[in-house]
Nucleic acid binder design. Structure first.
Length: 114
DNA sequence: AACCTGACGGACA
DNA sequence: CTGTCCGCCAGGT
């Protein structure tokens, strides 16, 4: 039941592949960088990442800097795994389990001409 | 085509 | 903090 990645998904995967180790981005920031009006659509594209770990979907968290989801789950053991992976890459968390704001990656933005 | 569903986010109670 | 509601849009049925 596989499906070739859609154009939209490829754009998502390509973009998040540029997030360096030790940094994270958010669904909203990815959506904005892609000029996509739905943050949820980005989450849906990552819901099942067919290219793990080539595409580092664990480096995308929620706008509130909570973990979001991982491998189809939004809680439990899978999510704990996501946090560990990030910690091993150097991402720091505060006491409430939220990502340190300094670890947010800023996408290089440029566009043709207004 | 006509719904339904989301790893979302922001507003509000 | 929790929970609800609504807008968003790509994909699936």
């Amino acid at each position: 039941m596989s499906r070739p990645p859609t154009d939209f998904e490829i754009r998502v995967y390509d973009l998040i592949s540029t997030i360096p180790k030790g940094k994270v981005s958010t669904y909203a920031l990815v959506a904005r960088a892609l000029d996509c009006g739905s943050n949820q659509a980005v989450g849906q594209a990552l819901r099942r990442n067919p290219f793990a770990p080539r595409v580092p979907c664990h480096r995308v968290v929620s706008a509130a800097l909570t973990l979001g989801g991982f491998n189809g789950h939004r809680d439990g053991d899978e999510l704990a795994r996501k946090r560990r992976m990030l910690e091993e890459e150097g991402v720091r968390f505060d006491a409430q389990g939220r990502v340190h704001p300094a670890c947010i990656h800023v996408f290089q933005e440029w566009w043709p001409a207004p």
